[in-house]
Write a protein that binds this DNA or RNA. Structure first.
Lengths: 151, 151
DNA sequence: GTGTCTGCAAACTTTTTGCAGAGCT
DNA sequence: AGCTCTGCAAAAAGTTTGCAGACAC
């Protein structure tokens, strides 16, 4: 079972472990996919498709391939999609068994991202669902502010 | 000062009051703007630009005019922009003095929207800001689930 | 009359898709 | 070999912008 300590202890999966996960899913371990995983692994916070594509360098793969890879990785539960409110998805690596539920504090000036451990209280969420008759309720929560450097 | 009772008591501003607000801001009260305000007023939850445009009917104005109007109204503090995570902004009318900070419970099947009164605890938000050195911290919070009809 | 608004058309951004050929196992 | 992946190019969806004419005040 995951708990708060787990959450704190989250660390980068090894590339070889990521490769294994792909192979287990009967997915091919191609150059672009390795490169994308390596880039995601090198960053502590979610990256936009553009950031990933630029980090890949000129001739690693097509932008469409990045999009297709992110879809595949998302479906396989290896990355989680985030929405920071600029119109553009971000993706962060997930460890095995991690549902990726977490939140961020984002600088409105420079887009610097800090991971936040706090979460919306579970009992209140439950109550909101029940009192409106909704099932399977989750939430998306992101914080915005001005980071130290931009003040 | 706004409090929770205020929040509950929120009601639709009159069209004439909205017109006054525009005039006070030295904005012109044009046909498209009146029509857009009337549509926003008729709906209890935020509308997408597409919804507004369709509700306007065929020849009221151009789609570009809707976008420009929403920008203007947002800048003037008359509407608030929401992001429900489908790639498309939503806009809801604001009463005078309302900062528009509120949250929604959205059906992932049919996009039905319910307004939610609960908010993320202020002290925790403050703490998150302080411990990361961020200033002017706010948050965006939306709930997602399956509504009664879609279950 | 004058400065603001609007329609139209074009451009831009992010993302998706069809197809033929290349690559992984 | 066989099925998956990829590049390329085109398209879709949401949004923005330049420009000339229309309109509110």
């Amino acid at each position: 079972m995951r708990n708060k300590a787990d959450h704190h202890a989250r660390h980068r999966p090894k590339l070889s472990a990521l490769a294994d996960r792909l192979r287990r899913r009967a997915k091919k371990l191609t150059g672009p996919r390795q490169a994308i995983l390596a880039i995601l692994r090198s960053q502590p916070h979610p990256l936009s498709v553009r950031e990933i594509f630029l980090a890949l360098g000129e001739r690693v793969c097509d932008l469409a391939t990045v999009y297709r890879s992110m879809h595949m990785l998302e479906k396989e539960g290896m990355v989680k999609r985030f929405d920071f409110g600029d119109g553009g998805a971000r993706f962060g690596l997930l460890e095995e068994g991690d549902d990726g539920h977490r939140h961020h504090l984002i600088c409105v000036e420079c887009a610097k991202v800090v991971e936040v451990d706090e979460c919306f209280p579970d009992e209140i969420e439950k109550r909101i669902g029940i009192s409106n008759g909704f099932k399977k309720v989750t939430h998306r929560l992101e914080f915005f502010g001005v980071c130290p450097r931009c003040q």
